[in-house]
Design a protein around this nucleic acid. Structure first.
Length: 884
RNA sequence: GGGAGCAUAGCUCAGUUGGUUUAGAGCAUCUGCCUUACAAGCAGAGGGUCGGCGGUUCGACUCCGUCUGCUCCCACCA
């Protein structure tokens, strides 16, 4: 079979993925081996593959495949997250397109549509991950809202409720008026936003609700909320405002009378020193309101529109109302001035709507104990953050975390298992039946229909924080005393978690909490935090910017292996990734290089009667040593999670050492055969290389490994063992480097003198050079004879130095003496400068006295070497001058 | 406003407790090659006062201070 000169990935990749699946190579069951466990950060069930997933899952897959080849029982559990807000949104949109309004549906009807939608469109991303080569155990695929995992969530809620850590409270929450739900503090993004600072006159009341001619001025960014004002507040120490004590003022436009109060909270030198207090629509104002017993008047509805309580502008959107009310205030003469103002405004992470602080009844989970334990887990090193720079951030968050608002005003999700009795009392139980039973203990004879279940569902993170436990044993969360099932006992704690730093708090920290609470043990040993994928301009990739390429198109164009390489190349640990398609091209080129090296070897004919030549002998010896050295380095990189360094080491080893040096050395002349011994080694080396590269580039390595020789049905490179490093001769590897340098210098002379690589040259050596390596120089630099001499008297050629050994290529008639002299003089100059700097050091008594012996010895060696070089340059120059 | 991190070749980054010749890699660039595995290639070459200033030290890319620039996290001054 003739192999194409270019590697064509698509057919190859589909073929092998099918084969892997068919043979269930990714499937894991507990056995006697050491487990290596990874749970996927479950992508949104609505999600489609983006570059962040590619990065994440490539790294994950590399680690999993590496562990598998290291002989561990590797298990990578995939799955998806029900993503309540995102999914509900998609379903609502779909229904709207069909002319159906959510508000016209019952909860049950809506959920039916939602499940239909999920079955039809959900989980596409899992199919896409296969294209990337992800070796997940698909038989273990989980979904956070499947019945068993939902049970786990409900049990967890009941557990914490009974423990007293879950409570319902009326709180100021972050309200997303776009999605009509509360969101957690972590889902609010503060952005500096340009707005206006409106200075408004509030006239003092005459006591009968009529304005006097006296007034005070407040400054606000939210004039549309003045109708909800409950007081005006000044700092008690602010003498400018003492005349206001006991006074009442009138809210402009509606003329409602409110008191002037005093509170330390008000900064005297900010704004006008007078603060309008609007308890229903501002977190601090709410706090002040509590302190001063102020009434709470809510004038904004769940959609962010003014309600009837506002009296004016009823039904207007808050931002429209702002514009209109400013105009009205101006007309009424209440507007003093408007300043440009930039202030931090909270936006919903999900909808980008401006968050409305809103007073509502929500469920909370107490965080203090959980956070304390989770902090200890990381500080003690039981869970390591990689890179560790995230430890500070993690600590800070854990020390300042507030209670977690876990209720969401949505339907898609686990409905809170709280049931209200007619008298308002609450029972919390895992099933309606149990709830009724409990309720009857409170009110005998209660009927099922008398119990009303809480309408809200739980925050999605309240299910995904159980993920590393629930994917194995869904009955464990919420039951810390229950013994774990066999899977959980074997696979937990997991080893590595690969995820983005953006969900360190949302997800990772909370998993550590849940793991500690229910398992008494951290969920993972290491958390590898990837960078964030950015475009060339440094912008985060996002759908809205449209700057994210479609990974599937890239895989189609370059192949999955190339895409994996491309992502890894630009992802040094912990740094953000500046994505550039040229990296993927590099990956494709590497595939092609590997492919073509195989074409070369495959084309050779073997002659068993041939003796192994000296050059082949030394080539095999060198590459064998080098292989061990590189394996050692690669293992070291892996152990430090420096995946891109491991890749680069292998990349250079394959491209430079194997292809450019080794294969060039053992390559038989055109039409000739290779000896059997060398051939066998060459094939073994190739096989080792494929195995080393397989975790990174699974497809091409399987293809070539299978093509090397007939393999048994059901065999695969992914279960071959990682090649192990043997002891190696470092000195020999270094000596070989001298041979490479020599060949390089001769090639360089050819280039300068315009001598074809086909013309043979003669080489003279003065000084040390390992004889074993002479055939290497001969073959790679096309040198016919090599002669050791004590001097170069009477020779005409280009000289160069390898270490302290002098060499010369004979160039009769081709030599430009002037040029040679100039070249040597430049080298001499450089060397003399170097010598000066070394001597300066050595003549410094402090240096000799203070520096450690070996350092001083090294300097002396430098001095000696430098002197010998200088001497050599001078003699060469003199010789050239004499020959002139 | 508070905190953290980063600044090394055109680009992306290494540089492991201060001393390994006068700082490395990959890509890009330049020069010469369609040499019978690969032009998605081969051979060779050039390119950096290690962000600025100051300090500690016999010696600083490496430690300390400071300035500048960028990034991220946290944060309710209306």
């Amino acid at each position: 079979m003739e192999l194409d000169v270019k590697y064509a990935p698509s057919a190859v990749e589909d073929k092998w993925y099918e084969y892997w699946l068919k043979n269930k190579f990714f499937h894991s069951e507990p056995d006697g081996r050491v487990p290596y466990t990874v749970v996927i950060p479950p992508p949104n069930v609505t999600g489609i593959l983006h570059m962040g997933h590619v990065l994440n899952n490539t790294l994950n897959d590399v680690l999993v495949r590496k562990a598998r080849m290291d002989g561990r029982n590797a298990c990578w559990v995939p799955g998806t997250d029900h993503a309540s807000i995102a999914t509900e949104n998609k379903v609502v949109k779909m229904l709207e397109e069909q002319g159906i309004k959510k508000s016209d549906l019952t909860r049950e009807q809506f959920l039916e549509y939602a499940w239909q939608w999920k079955e039809k469109y959900g989980g596409i991303i899992l199919k896409q991950l296969r294209k990337l080569g992800a070796s997940c155990d698909w038989d273990r695929t989980r979904f956070t809202m499947e019945p068993e995992l939902s049970d786990a969530v409900i049990n967890t809620f009941v557990y914490f409720y009974k423990k007293g850590w879950i409570y319902k409270g009326v709180r100021m929450v972050n309200w997303d008026p776009d999605r009509c739900t509360a969101v957690s503090d972590e889902e609010v993004i503060h952005k500096d936003t340009k707005s206006h600072f409106y200075h408004l006159k509030y006239f003092i009341s005459d006591g009968n609700g009529k304005p006097t001619d006296k007034y005070l001025v407040i400054a606000t960014t939210r004039p549309e909320t003045i109708m909800a004002d409950a007081a005006i507040c000044v700092n008690p120490a602010d003498e400018r405002h003492h005349w206001l004590r006991g006074k009442k003022v009138l809210i402009p436009l509606i003329n409602r009378e409110i008191p002037v109060i005093e509170d330390d909270y008000v900064e005297m030198d900010f704004g006008t020193g007078c603060l309008k207090v609007t308890p229903a629509h501002d977190v601090h104002d709410y706090e002040i309101g509590l302190r001063h017993n102020l009434p709470v008047l809510d004038i904004i509805d769940e959609h962010g529109r003014l309600n009837a309580e506002a009296q004016i502008l009823v039904g207007e959107d808050r931002f429209v109302a702002r514009k209109k009310i400013v105009k009205m205030l101006e007309e009424q003469g209440n507007l003093v001035k408007v300043e440009e103002y930039v202030s931090p405004v909270g936006y919903s992470e999900k909808s980008d709507a401006v968050i409305e602080p809103r007073l509502s009844a929500q469920w909370f989970l107490k965080m203090d104990e959980l956070a304390k334990a989770a902090l200890e887990t990381v500080e003690s090193g039981r869970t390591k953050l990689i890179p560790d720079k995230y430890l500070n951030t993690y600590r800070h968050w854990m020390e300042t975390v507030r209670d977690w608002c876990i209720s969401r005003q949505l339907w898609w999700g686990q409905q809170i298992p709280a049931y209200y009795l007619p008298d308002g009392r609450i029972v919390v139980e895992s099933t309606p039946e149990k709830a009724l039973e409990e309720a009857r203990k409170l009110v005998p004879g209660l009927k099922a229909e008398d119990l009303k279940r809480d309408e809200d569902v739980l925050d999605t993170w309240f299910s995904s924080w159980l993920w590393p436990i629930s994917v194995f044993d869904p009955h464990k969360p919420g039951n810390p005393d229950k013994a774990p099932n066999a899977d959980l006992a074997y696979y937990y704690p997991t080893n590595d978690l690969v995820t983005g730093p953006d969900i360190l708090f949302f997800w990772v920290a909370r998993m550590i909490m849940a793991g500690g609470e229910f398992m008494g043990k951290e969920p993972f040993a290491n958390v590898y935090l990837t960078g964030i994928v950015r475009d060339k301009l440094g912008r985060k990739m996002s759908k809205s910017l449209g700057n994210s390429p479609d990974p599937l198109e890239l895989i189609d164009k370059y192949g999955a292996d190339a895409v994996r390489i491309g992502m890894l190349l630009c992802s040094s640990a912990g740094n953000d990734i500046f994505y550039d398609e040229s990296m993927i091209e590099q990956g494709r080129n590497f595939c092609n290089k590997i492919w073509n090296s195989f074409r070369l070897i495959k084309g050779w004919s073997v002659d068993a009667s041939l003796e192994q030549s000296d050059v082949n002998k030394v080539a095999v010896k060198w590459f064998g040593n080098k292989l061990s050295q590189v394996i050692e380095a690669v293992e070291d990189h892996y152990s430090k999670y420096r995946i891109s360094d491991a890749l680069m080491a292998l990349y250079k080893f394959f491209w430079d050492d194997y292809c450019a040096w080794y294969l060039e050395l053992v390559k038989p002349a055109y039409g000739q055969a290779i000896d059997e011994k060398t051939y066998k080694c060459t094939i073994d080396f190739f096989s080792s290389l494929l195995k080393l590269i397989h975790p990174i580039m699974p497809f091409i390595t399987e293809e070539l490994w299978q093509a090397m020789e007939p393999r048994k049905e059901g065999s695969t490179i992914m279960y071959e063992s990682t090649p192990k490093a043997a002891t190696y001769d470092k000195a020999f590897i270094e000596a070989f480097e001298r041979a490479k340098e020599t060949a390089g210098s001769i090639r360089s002379i050819r280039q300068q003198k315009n001598i074809s690589p086909k013309n043979e040259l003669e080489l003279k050596i003065k000084g040390e050079f390992q004889e074993e390596l002479l055939p290497v120089v001969k073959k790679l630099a096309n040198v016919s004879t090599i002669e050791f001499r004590s001097d170069f008297e009477g020779l005409s050629g280009a000289g160069f130095m390898i270490g302290t050994t002098e060499m010369m290529v004979i160039l009769s008639g081709l030599l430009n003496t002037e040029e040679e002299i100039a070249k040597l003089e430049a080298l001499l100059q450089y060397q003399q400068n170097f010598l000066d700097s070394v001597r300066k050091k050595l003549s410094n008594q402090n240096f000799v006295a203070h520096a450690p012996e070996n350092v001083v010895a090294a300097e002396r060696k430098k001095e000696a070497d430098s002197l010998s070089k200088i001497e050599s340059y001078i003699s060469q120059i003199n010789q050239l001058k004499n020959n002139k």
